[in-house]
Nucleic acid binder design. Structure first.
Length: 278
DNA sequence: CCGACAACCTGTGAGC
DNA sequence: TGCTCACAGGTTGTCG
């Protein structure tokens, strides 16, 4: 479950309950994730204490204590979830691939990784983040000051592809998946097919503003909406946000009443209003 | 360098 | 009820 707001909601839940706990044991039931789980995955983690839970793009980073400065890097893919259960954990379901058994003064816990499609991943690494191959090529975070309209404008001067594809390119800016790309473009009044190098500096400023707004609102709503989104306490997602376009092809535009259109960009569904978006 | 597309998997919902 | 098919949040790798 995927987009940045969902991952941020999970991060907050995990940080509140996991920091300070020690990994007593690791149970691996299925190593075949997006990349096979390393052979020494369990033994490297056991005995370490969780120092912090951070996020970079849609990756969660569990910082571990100890001289190695180990980090557990987790990506939830499309259908992954990380849920903290009381110990002993409830009966296993299909696709419960990894358990971290954690101690704690208020009782032990089980951090369980569940992922039907196995598009998610778990890696252990030490050293600086930018030396980790999965993190090294990532663009700036959309909710920091690094991302500005100027930043996007200057880096898209030679991009003839669509602005929607550019928005979803993690080397340009991270964390904007299909849902929020659709929404931000609508709110900024920009047609998703428009070439990235044919958008003015001013309009990129507007786009960045709307990207921030839609992501912030989704975080505040508790991680939006995805059908199978589950937060760190196992609460299921709710459909709290009303989308302007995502999932509404063929329905009426909330702004002008026209019929929303459906196309594809890179195999992903794009919904837009040809009247409100130019 | 850029962009389109397939691939990685399973589950779900629509349609017949 | 049961079958088949299209599609779903992300990311990587390949090919033109």
């Amino acid at each position: 479950m995927p987009e940045l707001p969902e991952v941020e909601v999970v991060r907050r839940g995990l940080a509140a309950t996991l920091v300070g706990r020690r990994v007593d044991a690791v149970v691996v039931r299925e190593r075949r994730l997006r990349w096979p789980l390393a052979a020494d995955f369990a033994t490297r983690l056991e005995g370490l204490r969780i120092k912090a839970v951070e996020r970079r793009s849609k990756y969660l980073l569990l910082r571990m204590d100890g001289e190695g400065g180990l980090t557990l890097l987790v990506h939830l893919g499309m259908t992954g979830s990380l849920v903290v259960h009381p110990s002993p954990a409830p009966a296993q379901r299909k696709h419960d691939h990894v358990d971290l058994l954690l101690d704690g003064e208020d009782g032990s816990r089980v951090l369980r990784y569940h992922d039907p499609r196995r598009f998610g991943s778990m890696h252990l690494f030490s050293g600086e983040d930018h030396r980790q191959p999965l993190l090294s090529a990532l663009g700036p975070e959309p909710l920091t000051d690094v991302l500005t309209g100027d930043w996007l404008f200057e880096r898209t001067r030679r991009r003839t592809g669509s602005v929607k594809q550019a928005l979803m390119d993690n080397a340009l800016v991270v964390g904007i998946g299909n849902i929020y790309a659709n929404e931000a473009l609508f709110r900024a009044g920009i047609h998703p097919d428009r070439a990235a190098n044919r958008i003015s500096r001013v309009r990129y400023g507007r786009l960045v503003k709307e990207v921030r707004a839609v992501l912030t609102e989704a975080i505040a709503a508790g991680g939006s909406t995805l059908r199978d989104f589950v937060d760190a306490r196992g609460h299921v997602g709710y459909f709290q946000l009303d989308y302007f376009v995502y999932g509404r092809a063929g329905e009426a535009c909330r702004r002008c009443g026209g019929v929303l259109k459906l196309t594809r960009h890179g195999g992903r569904a794009t919904v837009y209003c040809s009247h409100c978006q130019r």
